[in-house]
């Protein structure tokens, strides 16, 4: 019985994963439409600066609660460390992406 429940629930998890990925794709499409309404180069530059500032803020809010700011590791190491911390400290998906961008710039 337990085995059947586990198989059923794993299927639910996979379905929910596909659902999340599809929803993320839709969100990206909306962003593209919005971006086309303004000057592309200026928008990209401003977005990058804002994203960096937001990433720094999220870093201090999340990571700074437990430990001091580490120096920046190479990008491929940072990708692993942030994935580890996402699980360990239950950082939200949005925070994780912003922190990863900030820590690899």
């Amino acid at each position: 019985m337990l085995k059947k429940i586990l198989i059923f629930l794993w299927s639910l998890a996979l379905a929910s994963s596909v659902w999340g990925a599809a929803a993320a794709g839709n969100g990206q499409g909306l962003d593209t439409n919005t971006a086309s309404a303004t000057t592309a180069a200026t928008r990209v530059s401003n977005d990058a600066a804002e994203r960096r500032l937001e990433g720094e803020r999220r870093f201090h809010e999340n990571c700074g609660r437990c430990h001091a700011a580490p120096h920046k590791f190479p990008p491929r190491m940072m990708a692993t460390i942030v994935r580890h911390m996402r699980v360990r400290a239950m950082i939200t998906d949005e925070d994780m992406h912003l922190i990863l961008d900030y820590m690899t710039q």
Partner: peptide, 24 residues
């Protein structure tokens, strides 16, 4: 709980980071 949350909450923000993680 997780299924309900997946349906109700917005999907993740997209990031510009594309590096593959390496074992550490």
């Amino acid at each position: 709980l997780s299924g309900v949350l997946s349906a109700v909450l917005p999907a993740s923000a997209q990031n510009s980071f594309s590096e593959r993680p390496v074992p550490i």
